[in-house]
Amino acid sequence: MWQINEKNEKEFLGGKTAWDMAAEIAEACAAFSLDVEEELIAEEEVSCYNCRYRRWTAETFVCLKK
């Protein structure tokens, strides 16, 4: 689900459309925190795609929580 990229960041391997996987991971994540409304993109509220600790990249996102 994750890889460590060249910047030593935790990068999501599912890209930007792995809706189920992103929701599943967030459900089990104690650090999940919902981002502001205008930045939410997943219908499942609890999703890495809606988390304020995700930083979007061109292809996917990195998780900023250590």
Binding site: K7, D35, E38, E39, R52, Y53, R54, R55, W56, T57, A58, L64
Partner: peptide, 12 residues
């Protein structure tokens, strides 16, 4: 969204 742009998390 580009590595050379220092946005916080979504660059909007």
């Amino acid at each position: 969204l580009h590595p050379d742009i220092p946005y916080t998390s979504h660059n909007s």
